[in-house]
Design a protein around this nucleic acid. Structure first.
Length: 769
DNA sequence: GAAGCCCACATTTTT
DNA sequence: TGTGGGCTTC
């Protein structure tokens, strides 16, 4: 234990040994945040806490895996494996799978990724005859996602005056209806989207105090990484779980909060001590990554923000070079000057290509650099394109896996029903959908028994549907017996996907084959690992649960180590990484900061934090560059240098051109400021931030205490004593009813499944006696 | 069901 | 400028 502590600096050590009660670790960029987290967990284990009673939450799989590995190095792999460690989403999915029954969900529910939910939203918008131009699926998706992250259920959304008013003003008064239908459809499909994992976990904890209590008692310590990026739903999950033991440690840096558009609420960290009054605050201020010049420049920059927790980050490394500012006449010239600069530095200081990163505000900027690097024979890798799991061929295969685990999955069914082509067209799918909506059941349920629902199809189509159903059924059956990798291969062959992919001999076709093989290999590895760990269940369920929540940043990271290339990525994607030399490009008004942020103080502060993140990625050299003209949004535009250049103390800057140019910036953006009075009205949850954070009550969740406890003998046409038949649980008798019509909950004693609580609004059942 | 044409759109996106 | 999605056409 002593050896452990010796590897830490005094402030890190203090944070690590403080084990009882709430604590907040403010970790400046490059200050050894992960080190503190891992040592803190290891320290607690060495003090005798069982690893499986420690919960550690991160935002990315990459962070979770990294921490797991480092903890394994300290306390051994066997011990580290027992930790509850993972992303918020994966931990929630794990809890929900155990407890899904009470919410009316199948434990084998599948997960919609962003494109699945967008597709479903598009379908719904069309179905209820709304104009897709007014109701842009992406925008609607955002609204619903934000609502979920602020814990508004569809009912609460519809009941909230401010939200409705906001929608009306943005000419989308029917979002509430779309949300309701969407949620209902997901439920019918036994599916949750990313946000649902957080939302339903909150609903679970709120409506089932005994379940919450179980987890509260279980977790003796909770640790959260990147706390500045938590949203309200995540904040509440942590708060509820930590209530009993109060052993909660959150680590983060308010200066690096850059995900507010995803619902992240910086107030969670700024006001942490208001929620936990006994909080001990630790500050990690020594930066081990960057030169003094870079750290000081970054400090001067972030000092321009009003909202922040005060800290003085310092570096004891060498002073280092000043931050160089490059100016170019055009975006093309910027490309060439950056390429030239990389070659030059490489020659001078023997840097490898992988010591360089080009960071930009928007993905669209990458193209020009791609061209200029290629022409200069500089190897590069762009991060942030289509991820492995979003590729069509991979999604197609996974859709079959999903059908095997959960055939009610609507999007998976739509993906697979006619791929590979088996002559089931849109007309048929529309007919099935129509009946499914009418009957309030899943597409699969209709397809399974077309005759029962009078599906208007001819004999030929019926045969094709039956064929598809038989195929999926055979996979479902095998999934019970066979191991996942064997079944995976089988699925590929039986569906004809293998033949389909092999038939294509183009380079793209070959890469698709490779991807398919890679997927099957990862499935095989997954099964083998589980065998080694002695886990019994070798079916597809767990593989899917993991894969659905996986992006391929980890795969990318491995590649970075292996090959010597210049990295290109957005600043967002660069968070948590470090490079010897960082080139931040496009430092222009209306690009960085983006127009949308200009005019909103909060938006500007976030853009500035983004700039701070970019600068603090650099270990040795940081270079800023801007172009005086650029092709942007379909036209050539004259650009002026970013105001952020002026936020850095000139002492740390090396301007190549006359300083008088700096003065010429001023008029350009005072003028513009008048033009962009785009101070739009705030979304209600933005205004509510204060309220939601400070009130630890769950007033927003369904069924308030009052309604929840109100026991009644009859709700609608259901009475205590009735016998009902539930679609999944079979028959049982109603032993108790509570709540009002809106949030009615029934306790039912099922013959086969024992006592369950059902939310009547969701439950699928019929009264039989 | 695939190919081709036209039009709209162009901010970031841990899961 | 360039892309991607939706629609039309064969």
């Amino acid at each position: 234990m002593e050896v452990l502590l010796q590897q830490l600096n005094p402030s890190q050590r203090e944070a690590v040994v403080h084990q009882d009660g709430p604590s907040l670790v403010i970790a400046g960029a490059g200050s050894g945040k992960t080190r503190v987290l891992t040592y803190k967990i290891a320290y607690r284990i060495l003090q005798g806490t069982y690893p499986y009673r420690i919960l550690a939450l991160t935002f990315t799989n990459k962070a979770a895996n990294e921490m797991k590995e480092r903890i394994a190095g300290l306390v051994g792999e066997e011990t580290a494996r027992q930790l509850w460690m993972g992303t918020f989403h994966s931990i929630c999915s794990r809890i929900l799978r155990r407890e899904a029954g009470v919410l009316g969900f199948d434990p084998n529910f599948t997960i919609y990724d962003a494109s699945d939910s967008k597709n479903l939203l598009r379908t719904i918008i069309k179905e209820i005859n709304l104009d897709e131009k007014t109701y842009k699926p992406g925008v609607v998706q955002n609204r619903i996602s934000n609502a979920k992250n602020a814990l508004f259920t569809p009912e609460q959304y519809a009941a909230d005056k401010e939200l409705i008013e906001y929608d009306t003003r943005s000419h989308m008064p029917n979002i509430k209806i779309i949300y309701q239908i969407y949620q209902n459809r997901c439920f019918q499909s036994e599916v949750m989207d990313f946000d649902d994992l957080l939302l339903y976990t909150n609903i679970l904890f709120h409506n089932y105090p005994e379940i919450l209590q179980k987890y509260q008692q279980h977790f003796q310590a909770i640790l959260v990484d990147e706390y500045q990026d938590t949203n309200y739903a995540q904040h509440l999950i942590v708060q509820q779980l930590a209530q009993l033991h109060q052993n909660v440690c959150v680590v983060g840096d308010d200066a690096q909060s850059i995900y507010s558009f995803r619902g992240a609420n910086i107030d969670n960290i700024l006001k942490f001590k208001d929620v936990y009054p006994d909080t001990r605050i630790f500050k990690l201020e020594q930066n081990y990554r960057s030169t003094q010049t870079i750290v000081n420049a970054a400090n001067s920059l972030i000092g321009k923000n009003v909202e922040q927790i005060h800290k003085k980050v310092y570096s004891e490394k060498e002073k280092g070079e000043k931050i160089q500012v490059l100016s170019a006449y055009s975006d093309y010239e910027e490309g060439y000057s950056i390429a030239a600069r990389i070659s030059e530095m490489r020659m001078q200081k023997q840097y490898a290509y992988k010591d360089f990163a080009i960071l930009y505000r928007t993905n669209a900027q990458s193209r020009i650099f791609e061209e200029s690097l290629r022409k200069n024979n500089i190897p590069y890798k762009i991060y942030g394109g289509l991820s492995f799991f979003q590729r069509k061929e991979i999604k197609d295969i996974i859709a079959y896996f999903r059908m095997t685990v959960n055939p009610h999955d609507e999007e998976a069914l739509k993906r697979t029903i006619n791929y590979p082509a088996r002559g089931i067209g849109n007309t048929t799918i529309n007919k099935i959908t129509h009946v499914a909506i009418e009957q309030n059941i899943s597409l699969w349920a209709v397809l399974s028994d077309p005759a029962k629902y009078d599906l208007p199809i001819n004999a030929g189509t019926a045969a094709k549907l039956a064929g598809y159903k038989a195929l999926v059924d055979s996979f479902i059956e095998q999934n019970e017996a066979a191991e996942a990798d064997i079944l995976g291969k089988n699925i590929m062959q039986k569906t004809g996907i293998v033949n389909d992919l092999y038939a294509d001999k183009t380079p793209e076709g070959l890469s698709r084959v490779q991807n398919m093989e890679e997927l099957l290999n990862s499935l095989k590895t997954f099964v083998q690992n589980r065998k080694e760990e002695g886990i019994q269940n070798l079916g597809l369920v767990d593989f899917l649960a993991e894969v659905a929540l996986m992006t391929d940043t980890e795969r990318d990271a491995d590649e970075k180590e292996a090959s010597d290339r210049v990295t290109m990525m957005t600043i967002h994607a660069s968070k948590g990484l470090e490079f010897k030399n960082v080139l931040i490009v496009g430092m222009e008004e209306e690009l960085f900061p983006l127009p949308m942020a200009i005019g909103s103080p909060k938006g500007m502060e976030e853009e500035r934090r983004l700039f701070y993140v970019a600068v603090t990625r650099a270990e040795e050299n940081c270079i800023l560059s801007y172009a005086k003209s650029r092709f942007q949004l379909g036209e050539y535009r004259t650009k002026s240098p970013s105001r952020f250049l002026k936020d850095i103390d000139p002492e740390y800057l090396k301007m190549p051109e006359y300083l008088k140019e700096v003065d010429s910036w001023m008029p350009s953006f005072t003028r513009r400021r008048n033009v962009t009075t785009t101070e739009t009205f705030k979304a209600p949850w933005e205004e509510k931030e204060e309220k939601t954070l400070s009130s630890p009550s769950f007033a927003k969740l369904p069924a308030t205490e009052a309604t929840q406890k109100k026991m009644v003998s009859q709700i609608g046409d259901l009475s205590v004593g009735n016998i009902i038949r539930h679609e999944r649980f079979g028959s049982g008798s109603v032993t108790a009813l509570e709540g009002d019509i809106e949030n009615a909950k029934a306790t039912v004693d099922f013959e086969k499944f024992g006592k369950k609580q059902l939310l009547l609004k969701f439950a699928r059942y019929e009264i039989v006696g």
